[in-house]
Structure formats: structure tokens, C-alpha cells
């Protein structure tokens, strides 16, 4: 396919599952090229079926290795799976090393597996600006499930939960005591908690602690929602616990489907996507309307205008332009 393929051709290709069309469309979306929006407009009616699964957890906790095993198990069940793996961009140079794919190389020739690496491009929360929009491309191409691996996250990057139907929180033994675990805001976002590197001796103890903690949390509010977080011990090196993890995810999906949750979460996901797009566009417009924001910033630096007043001023400039 020529690099100049029209959005119409790309969209037809995506719906037909053509790898080059999928790859090219994702680039267009990621780069905010006009073709990206045109492709999306055309394929969007063909989306909505796929189970979108977020995988998040601390840096080096074994997310990619676990996703590789999820691929194996999913392929074993004959389903097409796509992975969107996000790694951080340097805030200084904008460069990035995208190193998740290296854990999933064995599937390179399998047409039922699509792995795409994506840099966060300074978008917050362990995600990239167009995370869910890219997932729509995989969805339209018939991949189900779609797994989103976030940047290795700290204690407060919980944004993935608003962009996925199910969130797998990866916790790794030997990273502090259960107070650490309790403090981690991300604990509450896990629909399933995977204790990774289960071949390590401390894994069972961590799983036990997490289960206890989770029972407490569930007794307080979890049952209100009707889902009890499942804690599964997995090992990517020994390939254990993966079937249990997939069973937990299937159960979660069934629970979502049988309750109103699937629709609620879908609404939240799409609402988040729209809001993030509006934010992005609005900021670009504000900056453009201010022509040079230099003078505003000068005044703030000189402490003669507060940051909040400066923001209001910039918004006023945009409004007065219309």
C-alpha cells in the first residue's frame, strides 16, 4: 500500500484487518494528522465490541512479560489480541525508548497478534494522549481483547481505570511492606490484582496480604458494586497462574455484561476520551490566540499577575477572538 493511501482506503483496510492500514492509521491518529480523524470517523461505527483491558503497575514489575503470557493464553483460545504498550517520553528531548515489544517478539509472524509501542509524549497519568482512540482502530479491525500496558506507574497514576473495561494491577513482591501497598492509590483501581514474579519466595505472602486487605476494602464498599477484586499469583517465567488470570478477566467481563457496568464504563471511557480531546484542542487554541504567551508569562514571573489570573486572561483572548 502506498504511503499516500487515502483515509477511505485506510479505513477499508482497517476494517478488513490489513496490518499496514492499521499501522498507518495509528500513526496518523498519534500525530494528529487530519487523516487520523477521517479514518476514525469511518471506522468508529464498527467498534464497541472489544474488551479493553488495562495493565498497570510499578516500573519493572513484569507487566510486559505478563502481557506476553496473556497473548499466549489468548491465542491458545483462538482469539485475536492487540497490545498497545506505552513507555515514557523524555520531558527534555521528547525522545523515548520503547522497550515493551522486546518481551513479545515471539508473536511477530502471527497475524492474530498486533503489538504497537507508543510513547507517552508528555501526556500524564502513564498514558498517551490518544490511547483509547488507537484502541478503536484495533477494535474496528476485529481484535478482542485489546490490552493497554501503561507506563510503569507510581502511586497516583490511576487514569487507565477510566479508559479500560477491566484493569489488571500488577504488584510485585519485595517492594515494601503492606503499608506501602495500602498507601498506593492505584490499589483501588485493580479489578484483578496480579502478584507477578510468583516464582519468587515472597510472592505468596504478598498475595495473602493483598487478599486480606482486599476483603476489608470489599466489605466496606466493594460489595456495593457487586464485584470482589480477585488476587491472582502469576509467574511469566514459569508460565503459571495465567489461566487463572484469564479466567478472572473473563468473569469480570461477564459480570460487566450482566450488570449495567459495561455500559457505565463504556460511557466513562468515551467521555474521558472526548474531554481529553477538548482539553488538547482548547489549549492549542488558547496558545494560538495569545499569539505569544511570552508577555503573560513575563508578568507572572515578575509576580505582578498570578498564574490563575494569567490563565483567565488567555481564555479571554480566545473568547474575544470569536
Amino acid at each position: 500500500m502506498p504511503r499516500s493511501a487515502s483515509p477511505e482506503t485506510l479505513a477499508t483496510g482497517v476494517i478488513g484487518g490489513d496490518t499496514a492500514s492499521i499501522a498507518r492509521s495509528i500513526t496518523a491518529i498519534e500525530n494528529d494528522a487530519p487523516a487520523g480523524r477521517e479514518v476514525l470517523d469511518r471506522i468508529f461505527p464498527h467498534t464497541g465490541a472489544a474488551h479493553i483491558i488495562g495493565v498497570t503497575g510499578p516500573p519493572g514489575s513484569g507487566k510486559s512479560s505478563l502481557v506476553n503470557e496473556i497473548i499466549r493464553e489468548t491465542r491458545g483460545r483462538g482469539k485475536k489480541i492487540a497490545v498497545l504498550a506505552i513507555d515514557p517520553s523524555s520531558p527534555i528531548t521528547g525522545g523515548a525508548t520503547l522497550g515493551d515489544r522486546i518481551r513479545m517478539l515471539e508473536w511477530h509472524a502471527d497475524p492474530g497478534v498486533f503489538v504497537r509501542s507508543m510513547a507517552s509524549r508528555r501526556f500524564g497519568g502513564g498514558l498517551a494522549q490518544h490511547t483509547l482512540t488507537v484502541a478503536h482502530v484495533f477494535d474496528a479491525a476485529g481484535f478482542d481483547p485489546i490490552v493497554i500496558e501503561t507506563v510503569g506507574t507510581g502511586q497516583d497514576e490511576v487514569a487507565i481505570a477510566a479508559l479500560a473495561h477491566s484493569t489488571v494491577l500488577v504488584q510485585v513482591p519485595g517492594m515494601g511492606d503492606s503499608v506501602q501497598t495500602l498507601k498506593a492509590g492505584s490499589l483501588e483501581i485493580g479489578d484483578v490484582i496480579a502478584v507477578s514474579k510468583g516464582d519468587r519466595p515472597e510472592a505468596q505472602a504478598l498475595a495473602r496480604d493483598l487478599r486480606r486487605l482486599q476483603t476489608l476494602v470489599d466489605d466496606m464498599d466493594g460489595l456495593m458494586h457487586g464485584w470482589r477484586t480477585k488476587v491472582v499469583t502469576t509467574s511469566a517465567t514459569e508460565r503459571t497462574g495465567i489461566d487463572t488470570l484469564l479466567a478472572a478477566l473473563a468473569e469480570h467481563r461477564a459480570w460487566l455484561r450482566d450488570s449495567e457496568e459495561w455500559e457505565l464504563r463504556t460511557r466513562r471511557m468515551l467521555g474521558t476520551e472526548i474531554a481529553s480531546r477538548v482539553q488538547q484542542r482548547l489549549l492549542a487554541d488558547v496558545v494560538a490566540a495569545s499569539e505569544s504567551t511570552g508577555d503573560v508569562i513575563e508578568q507572572v514571573v515578575a509576580r505582578s499577575v498570578s498564574p490563575l489570573a494569567a490563565a483567565d486572561r488567555m481564555l479571554e483572548r480566545l473568547r474575544s477572538r470569536r
Binding site: 499501522a23 523524555s90 525522545g95 523515548a96 522497550g99 522486546i102 509501542s117
Partner: peptide
């Protein structure tokens, strides 16, 4: 290349021609 502002997909050792081509295709 990363330090020069590029986004680098690093696939490391023992890459066969097919692995390289398929990665180039999917990663665009």
C-alpha cells in the same frame, strides 16, 4: 537516538529479517 529526540523501538539481539520487517510494519 533517544537522546536526540527520536522514539526508539528497541528489539535487541538475534533479530531475523522477518522479525525486523514485521516490527517495522506494525510499528510503522
Amino acid at each position: 537516538f533517544r537522546d536526540a529526540g527520536f522514539e526508539v523501538i528497541y528489539t535487541g539481539l538475534f533479530q531475523t529479517p522477518e522479525m525486523i520487517a514485521n516490527a517495522a510494519l506494525q510499528e510503522d
